[in-house]
């Protein structure tokens, strides 16, 4: 099952840091999301070599996780050569994860 079936997400940027929230649609899926989406798993999904670059924050009352990924934006929106300089698409990429 893909994460997309049970959660929604939103990506934002500040400098070269992307943050991606992951939010359960239903409270019953929250424990699974919290268990499966470790920092290491998310780092590996994005191919981030250094897992230290990924930091996870937990907001249980909102059934939400917030991932902060450092160095994710090729230098940040102002100088990145990427097509999606903000990394707006990264939330959807994370939702592709197989649980």
């Amino acid at each position: 099952m893909k994460l997309h079936r049970i959660a929604h997400a939103r990506a934002g940027d500040k400098g070269d840091i992307s943050n991606i929230s992951v939010i359960a649609y239903h409270p019953k899926d929250w424990p699974l999301i919290k268990e499966r989406l470790s920092e290491a798993r998310v780092a590996s999904h994005f191919g981030v070599a250094d897992a230290e670059c990924v930091k996870r924050y937990v907001l249980p009352q909102l059934h939400a996780l917030n991932f902060v990924v450092r160095g994710a934006l090729a230098g940040g929106v102002t100088r990145s050569l990427a097509l999606d300089t903000h990394g707006k698409c990264l939330a959807s990429v994370l939702l592709e994860m197989e649980l």
Binding site: H8, A9, R10, G12, D13, K14, I17, N19, S21, I23, Y25, K55, Y57, L59, L62, A64, N66, V68
Partner: peptide
């Protein structure tokens, strides 16, 4: 609740 949760965490690092 969903739209507000997404925006609450938008461009936030440590909540």
């Amino acid at each position: 609740r969903s739209t507000c949760t997404e925006q609450l965490l938008y461009e936030i690092h440590d909540p």
